[in-house]
Design a binder for these strands. Structure first.
Lengths: 108, 108
DNA sequence: CGAATTGATATCTATCCGGTTATGGATTTC
DNA sequence: GAAATCCATAACCGGATAGATATCAATTCG
């Protein structure tokens, strides 16, 4: 039941650190918290918290192996974003079509 | 000089009230501040501030006419968003291609 | 078993942010 | 010109949030 609600998504991606983490996961694939912390520019607890937010937004999955946790991206989660932008463009376009219709009718 | 930096964009769209305003502009086209305030659920100054944020993110333009200000959406501003999601998917896909290459080479 | 490592959680703090009311400048209306 | 309307800005406030440090449970290693 992946909600088509883009709210959590936008909120999760609004933070640059968080977006950076997600971006690294997309670029480099599955990573442990330790690997992600190196180069994140913030402390390990901060990274863990960010990963928690990303997970809640459905943007990452986690896999536990021994004492370490591996995170990987879930690109399907971006779908509501794509849908939303498409919808906005659709509204606009349909208004334009309506205008065309109107002008066409006025033309007669 | 619409920056390909999705940061302002994500931040601007992270707030539901703001996203609602932008959505209405896309659906219904150009609107005055007064019209937008009606149905926004927040005060007029709040609406003005939100419109300021949207404007700074390039998502709306304003047009002054007498004592009222008309706002309209700028859909081109969504482009960095679309580009960014595409990039994320691209990274992922290219990593997958690399894996395919690797397997193909290992196969020989 | 004892020490070390990994990552999550608890707690605290400073800052940001979205909301309000108050106000003022510009314009239209009477 | 006085009154009313429209919208932006200022000042302020409370809650959310991103960050840090401290700590703890779980696991691995010696």
């Amino acid at each position: 039941m992946s909600p088509t609600n883009p709210d959590l998504l936008f909120r999760a991606l609004a933070d640059p650190t968080r977006r950076g983490l997600f971006e690294r996961l997309c670029r480099e694939g599955e990573q442990t918290v330790g690997a992600l912390t190196a180069g994140a520019g913030v402390s390990q607890p901060a990274v863990s918290k960010h990963l928690g937010v990303l997970k809640q937004a459905g943007l990452v999955r986690d896999r536990h192996q021994g004492r370490q946790t591996h995170y990987s991206p879930r690109l399907e989660a971006l779908r509501p974003l794509v849908d939303w932008t498409g919808e906005m463009e659709g509204f606009w376009k349909s208004r334009f079509d309506d205008l065309e219709d109107l002008l066409r009718r006025m033309d007669q």
